[in-house]
Write a protein that binds this DNA or RNA. Structure first.
Length: 514
RNA sequence: GCCCCGUUCGUCUAGUCUGGCCUAGGACGCAAGAUUUUCAUUCUUGAAAUCAGGGGUUCAAAUCCCCUACGGGGUACCA
């Protein structure tokens, strides 16, 4: 029987989570949900020097926004708590167990000594590696006598515990994305498992926790592929090979232009967020934009990220979360890195924005209007939204496409004036105005009727007087909008009403003359 | 340097495992046309990959094998 699917997302709280990490989490989540498994959030904070306050809260808030929930972990608890590695104290014993079994050893070399060694070798164009060929010449429990080691430890000499790789052995493992991957131990160095500060390194903590938390599948970024043989060997050393998780190493997200993996700075430089939420660096105070603050819809972000490096083989592109869960499979994840494309991200958001209910959008639009010192009731705003939303990708595009429903133009686009408001435009408008005033009086406040009649009148009037349709209509548009854009004129007149329509035309005649 | 992973339109990708249906399909973006009194939307059409390059294997290769180039990752008492 297959073990229960249990996967984890294990970020390090060294700053805001970037979208590559978010995608990794999404794949983990989809996989867990597909098999009715568990999704765990574990915080890997074993490097105190890189800890950034606020990062953990940020991560939790980001997933909350994306509507990705954890079954266990920091913030939700669970039977394997604590889920913050800094609060887990069992690692030392596991490291010691490996020393006992001969799979690891104490090493007393200082960082300075090792650094010097690396530099020396580099100067000789050689690669220094702490391994079977060099360990005898270094200060460790393999080269030193038992007494010497005991004395050093008793004297409080700082030490680390290193994994002892067997010489020249092939480590082969199966990767769910890449197939069989093989590394030879002669190219691997004896990685530190336990640091002199009393905390484990990623490798030890990760393997121990994945085992203790009964993780069935490790789905993580490709940057971990080279250290995977160490992890495989650790499972072996602990005697856990039987229930070692399966590995899947995901391709990385690359910069949209040039080369290299997507990094923090790319976003604002290239005009798109790399973080789910806005982030203010607690030290520098630098602010990086977020998807949420940029007006993206969370489900659009999930959909877009899920499709960046995965597809189900069909031509479908818009998926609900349930559809993603249903369709997801690890073996259809692509093997190569993907460049992020802002235009496509906008397109995804456009698709989701169109699906939103008009009154829902209107509710979110209200505060934006208020911030511009404008007031309008929800019904009116809803009507406006229904007319203009299809031209918007984001909530924030609404204003540019609908400002004229809320305030009269203060200026008139010069290019449009030059093109449309010529000859006796003012005279013609004045004449039209007489009829519109009459209509407004007859209709006494029924703007729907007014707009209808005004529209019919304009068409007839233009035909009868043999006027230029484009010229006249656009002069009215110019008067109502201030520019040569906007929705259907009748719709504008209907919403702003007869009084406002007339006022705006009067104003245009007054300002533009002729 | 060394090790590992990768390479199909500008971008994301389908097709590769199980060679022939691929004169390589879709989407984004781009261009043109239609619709609209305008802008946008929408619709239609189009341009866009000699499948990184070179060698094999085969009746047949984007698909299998080898080499090269390029890209990415790793090479820390970081994750």
């Amino acid at each position: 029987m297959q073990p229960k699917v249990r996967v984890r997302f294990a970020p390090s709280p060294t700053g805001p989570l970037h979208i590559g990490g978010v995608r990794t989490a999404i794949y983990n989540y989809l996989y867990a949900k597909k098999f009715n498994g568990d999704f765990i959030l574990r915080i890997e904070d074993t490097d105190q020097t890189r800890f950034v306050s606020g990062a953990e809260d940020y991560i939790i808030e980001a997933f909350k926004w994306l509507n990705i929930t954890f079954d266990e972990g920091v913030g939700v608890g669970g039977i394997h708590a604590p889920y913050r590695q800094s609060e887990r104290t069992m690692y030392r014993n596991f490291a010691l167990e490996l020393v006992e079994k001969g799979w690891a050893y104490y090493a007393f070399d200082t960082p300075q000594e090792l650094d010097d060694l690396r530099k020396q070798n580099e100067a000789l164009k050689r690669n220094f590696q702490y391994d079977s060929t060099t360990r005898q010449g270094l200060r460790n429990s393999l080269s030193l006598s038992k007494e010497a080691v005991e004395d050093l430890i008793a004297a409080g000499e700082p030490y680390v515990i290193r994994f002892c790789f067997p010489a020249d052995t092939d480590v082969v493992f199966n990767d769910l994305v890449r197939g069989e991957v093989k590394f030879n131990t002669s190219l691997l160095d004896d990685k530190v498992l336990y640091k002199s500060d009393g905390l484990p390194t990623y490798h030890l903590a990760n393997v121990v926790d994945d085992h203790l938390m009964e993780i069935s599948h490790v789905i993580r970024g490709e940057e971990w592929l080279p250290s995977c043989p160490l992890h495989v060997m650790l499972y072996k050393a602990f005697g856990w090979s039987e229930d070692m998780p399966q590995f899947a190493h995901l391709p990385l997200l690359l910069k949209p232009e040039g080369s290299g993996k997507l990094s923090k700075r790319d976003g604002d430089r290239l005009g798109f967020p790399v973080f789910p939420l806005q982030w203010s660096d607690p030290k520098s105070g630098d602010v990086s934009s977020g998807y949420r603050e940029s007006g993206y819809i969370p489900q659009a972000v999930v959909n877009m990220l899920a499709l960046l490096g995965w597809n189900d083989g069909t031509e479908k592109e818009i998926y609900s979360m349930d559809e993603l869960i249903e369709a997801f499979s690890i073996d259809r994840i692509s093997k190569h890195g993907a460049k992020f494309d802002v235009a496509k991200a906008k397109w995804f958001n456009h698709q989701y924005f169109q699906k939103l209910a008009d009154d829902q959008i209107a509710k979110d639009y209200l505060p934006i209007l208020n911030s511009k010192g404008l007031n309008a009731d929800l019904d009116y705003v809803t009507s406006v939204v229904s007319l203009v939303k299809e031209r918007c990708d984001f909530l924030n595009d609404l204003w540019d496409n609908s400002y004229y429903f809320f305030k009269a133009p203060e200026t008139y686009d010069e290019k449009v004036v030059a093109k449309r408001w010529k000859d006796d435009a003012g005279k013609q408008m004045a004449e039209i105005l007489i009829h519109l005033r009459q209509m407004a009086e007859t209709e006494c406040g029924d703007d729907v009727l007014f707009a209808q009649n005004a529209d019919t009148f304009l068409h007839n009037h233009i035909t009868e007087q043999q006027l230029n349709m484009g010229q006249i209509m656009n002069c009215i548009r110019l008067a109502l909008v201030g520019e040569g854009k906007g929705v259907n004129l009748a719709d504008i007149m209907r919403l702003i009403g007869s009084g406002e329509t007339i006022r705006r035309i009067e104003k245009a005649i007054e300002v533009l003359g002729r």
